[in-house]
Design a protein around this nucleic acid. Structure first.
Lengths: 221, 221
DNA sequence: AAATATTTTTAGATTTGTCTAAAATTTAAT
DNA sequence: ATTAAATTTTAGACAAATCTAAAAATATTT
């Protein structure tokens, strides 16, 4: 089997992988929206991926990655997240500006490159956004910590990490009385701007922006 | 003007740039050979590059990069050589195995990425093969040192650098009585295997392999 | 359960980069 | 200066990835 995939194929595999993460069901329309393309194009690619044995696909019914497809997806995610670590830790990129660049670097497939990069970075387990990095066998630590926007409402949790060390972020956190170890609950979310309302013990309810929420990692307690 | 080029376009630009380096004239056949493609495909692309104002092109007559084309070429060469430095200096690749990987990385175009990588590497002036790295304005130090295979016959020269610090290389150099500062002349070249015959003062003529020759940098004296 | 709306797929076209085979041009040789 | 040889370009075809418009299948409403 040819283990070499086009950039387009890899982007579809990765998008299916992410969309199918929590529950499992992905639709043609969702996928088209995620990839900024048209449903007809998605259908075309689904047929190609099926022919490549990366996808189970029943027209009009459903589709999901095969075991092989999943393995490929994890390899792509690994590359993406390792490059994000590199960009932030070594090249001093802001954690919020690395995604687009990593999206290009992730398609350089050399296994040797990826494993040496991994070693160079000290075999990190999480990327700058707190997402876990699969190892070279595709095994991924289920993160104890999750990004704050993923925390369910009214669930007590504790701040375990922040997504960057920028002084701007730290200044804002100090002002909001948030630090590592702070206990909080999410009370509400406004879908207009994805801002969150938080309750911290002995403090009034506060509102934080989506960007700030993304920079906070918590574990439930 | 759209300053975004496809991988194919970039590969053509780079190949034309390199082939046109010493003298200036490139032919369709040469270019096809260098890119492992067919002359007809080359002609097609020449027309596209002309339309993009990157190439002066008179059918059946000649073609060469415009000033703009040259600028693009230098940016690609810069990316390629910086990545080679990264692979050798940071990821511990052998200097002889980086070319293929750099060939992929060079097409990631983000200017910010390249400039930060440059800074991270300490703004190197030469890549692991001794080739000069253009700066962000496309200016390239004319190397005082050249790679040994480029040295003209019977021209006294002095070894100024070696292309790697691998112990295998150093062992071989010791055995051949070559080191930094050694004075030598190239007497002959065998095109079968590109091996060279060298004369070092007070020593008999010796033969060295193409690979060893590529690892040696000299300046004329 | 029929009618309507939504989703998904097909059919046919387009763009990019490539190819083969044939024609045009230039170069070399008699 | 013709003829022969080599080089280069054109013409027409193909695969990959995309699109629009129309058809098919599924889901929702009344």
């Amino acid at each position: 089997m040819n283990n070499n995939f086009s950039v387009a194929e890899e982007n579809y595999i990765k998008a299916i992988f992410h969309l199918q993460q929590p529950a499992g069901r992905v639709t043609t329309n969702e996928l088209a929206a995620a990839l900024q393309t048209k449903p007809a194009s998605v259908t075309d690619m689904l047929k190609k991926l099926k022919a490549r044995l990366l996808l189970h696909y029943k027209p009009y019914q459903e589709f999901y990655l095969t075991e092989e497809g999943n393995k490929i997806a994890l390899a792509i995610v690994r590359r993406h997240r390792l490059w994000e670590c590199f960009l932030v830790d070594k090249l001093q990129f802001g954690w919020d500006e690395v995604h687009a660049v990593a999206e290009e670097l992730e398609h350089v497939g050399s296994k040797k490159l990826v494993d040496k990069l991994d070693a160079f970075l000290g075999r990190p387990k999480f990327d700058p956004h707190g997402d876990p990095i699969p190892d070279s066998n595709g095994k991924m630590n289920v993160p104890k910590q999750i990004s704050l926007p993923r925390l369910a409402f009214n669930t007590p949790a504790e701040v375990t990490a922040v997504g960057s060390q920028s002084s701007e972020l730290l200044e804002l956190l100090k002002h909001k009385n948030i630090g590592i170890g702070t206990r909080l609950e999410v009370k509400n979310k406004f879908s207009f701007d994805n801002s969150l309302e938080l309750k911290i013990k002995n403090h009034p309810v506060i509102t934080i922006s989506e960007r700030l929420a993304n920079a906070l990692f918590v574990k439930t307690i």
